[in-house]
Write a protein that binds this DNA or RNA. Structure first.
Lengths: 189, 189, 189, 189
DNA sequence: AATGAATGAGTGTTCATTCAT
DNA sequence: AATGAATGAACACTCATTCAT
């Protein structure tokens, strides 16, 4: 209960001020407890950050798996679904996402490796879908699937930096725009 | 001379360890001078970071202008050129770029505003090219030019996080892959 | 307990070396604790100085009030009592007094205002007694009470700079000398 | 020429910000020269402070001597004249005076001794006049001349802390008020 | 007579962490 | 389960002073 509260408020603080600029004191002040309490639940500031990272990426991985395991979807539809998932996530978990992308460097080397492996898995599964689509002729035959996967993630992940999910364009609309661009390009005809 | 050396090595350190985690001591140790020397050339650590930011974005803005002012290029070609410029830049100024994208938060509010304005200008000029291309029918008529500009920048800027310009794929090749994806999409036929 | 110790020793150090010339390190060295301990009890060096100022002036104000509220005293006697109080204070709180008079400038503007207001109150109450004495014909009718109050405080406060309470002249004797000078002057007849 | 300029502006700065809080940089910035220039004229920051002290006290001593050497004056008049001199000085040399009273602690021990000796001389000569006046029966017979001298200086010197020579009360008026208080007291009859 | 570059010791302050209770 | 006191290492920054030119 308290542990979850700490995590939740830390995400807000890390997003707003950054990991380094947020002190344990800042965190416990929000909850009106003392630093001792923090160290009862977390062994270090870094472990808290690791928890946040794992929660974020594990959630994405399992939701990605649900999409990609759905055999009724074409590869094109799988890409569309995963793009939609990522863009919609900005609204509900944008803070976590920004912390995830920005603060990984503050983990120690071992934890960085663990997180990067999961992050790579997420990307590699997208790469596999692209590869599958090439095989099924849904996608162009000469695509370098790995680079395309990076390109897709660039479009979606960069959105965490600028997209306002409460603005004029809804997450669903943005996901459709980006899906179209990636799938069909912008050139006319 | 020394000022340039400080800037150069700071970029490397900021890239590797992050702005907060890099101390003035770290910086001057590399050059074998004292902290006093640092403060002779820079009024604060933040001013050094601002210098780095301005150097980076001003350079990009002027090169972008050269491309966009070239009336012999189509709008499609202009986009290709600017994508190529950004991807090739990873090789020569990748460190600066990563610092630019990651550490802006450590500037004070006024400086953040200044940098963001320039960064927005860079994006808005891309948006204008997309808009122009729509008018000339080079691009599809129903494109939201603003979102597309964000999409293009997502693809290129995210590359700073993963692309190894000395690896199997050359910057020129990657630029072509991304240009094709953005312009023509990945769907076959 | 420790907080009081810090305050006590700081007063000695500030008196001897001055506020600026006394470092936090100097202070904690005396008590054999670390700088962290200092900042556990005080938010800043300035706050410590403010504490010292408030302790000093609040004490004087309350003792002054006790004297001036004593309706059995004439206005002349009230002045004598307050002069005695100030001179006797040199022995017990001379260090605090010297810090108070000398180091106020190192407070921030808001704190300076707060302290000056209290200091002014102390003076204004003396002015009121002079004014009362004029009304009751104890004192000469044409006295500018405000300037006289400054004059009285000049005589007493300046004593903090030179008077040795353990020397040939006792505090009580000095108070009497100054009371006589102020009340009756030095001219004969 | 430049040396005098440095001294002049230093006095203003030392008065406003205090000796410690004023850097050599602050001083040379006002004159738009470099620190090297400062060290061409002064061997150290402290020497500048010593110059200021000596200028101030030597001037007072010589003017005091002119008054006390004037054999046409009674001892009472001599005191009146010296009080007038000191109060009028607030207008023309108030900055120097405040620096003199406040910053002496920043001199080294040898210089402190030199200045204190001169300051003591100034006081001792006042004491002598009081003593003379006692002999001539101008003043009361049982006065402790030394304490009275301190009292007189308290009244005048403290004025540097509060008296505004451009306010409602002129220096001449204030000098008269204080002379009357010291000579005749404030008690009526 | 004056400069500009450089020094190095010191300053106030922050903060993750520990630990007895 | 939680606290309060204490630590100590680190940090950005200041500044009087030096010195070759």
């Amino acid at each position: 209960m308290i542990k979850e509260e700490i995590t939740k408020h830390s995400i807000q603080l890390f997003e707003k001020k950054g990991f380094s600029q947020t002190s344990i004191q800042d965190i416990v002040d929000v909850l009106d407890v003392t630093k001792g309490t923090f160290y009862y639940y977390f062994s270090s500031k870094e472990q808290l950050l690791m928890d946040i990272h794992l929660q974020y990426i594990d959630n994405l991985l399992s939701r990605q798996q649900m999409i990609f395991d759905n055999t009724s979807l074409t590869n094109k539809e799988k890409l569309e679904e995963v793009i939609l998932m990522l863009i919609k996530d900005i609204k509900e978990r944008g803070s976590s996402g920004r912390v995830f992308f920005r603060e990984i460097r503050h983990l120690n080397n071992m934890n960085i490796s663990k997180v990067k492996e999961k992050r790579n898995n997420f990307r590699l599964r997208i790469e596999e879908v692209v590869q599958e689509g090439i095989k099924t002729k849904e996608f162009q035959s000469d695509l370098p699937a790995d680079m395309i996967a990076f390109g897709i993630l660039g479009v979606t992940n960069y959105s965490y930096n600028w997209f306002n999910p409460n603005g004029d364009v809804s997450p669903e609309e943005l996901a459709e725009i980006f899906s179209k661009m990636i799938l069909n390009g912008i050139v006319s005809g």
